[in-house]
Amino acid sequence: MKLSEIVQTLDLSVKTAPDHLDVEVTKGYISDMLSDVMGNAEEGSLWITIQKHQNIVAVAVMKSLAGIVLVKSREPDEDTVQKAEHEEVVILSTPMGAFELAGKLSNLGIMGD
């Protein structure tokens, strides 16, 4: 499923790189530990987290993730936004919690590892 469809269907707000929503989301991964994501998330995954500091951008780049969703209405830090725009990493935000969001994503057919 395309990231743009997910954004529309689940009413996620796009915080960065709105021109890069035309990517295929293969899987989802929830974690707030960066090295867990580095070690275990698969390429093309949508990453759900509460971390909002700029290092999440590097992780998304290094792992070629489809995008990052900040849950619980977390807003990305300002330098996170800058980096993400520069590296063309999509950051989304939603009032939903990780559990609820994951449930909705799996209803859309996005699975975990």
């Binding site: 707030d32 530990m33 960066l34 090295s35 867990d36 580095m38 070690g39 971390q51 999440i56």
Partner: peptide, 15 residues
């Protein structure tokens, strides 16, 4: 708090 410290960094490197 920043999401580091899982103790998985070096094991990841090794992998």
């Amino acid at each position: 708090e920043l999401g580091f410290g899982a103790g998985m960094g070096i094991p990841n490197i090794k992998k």
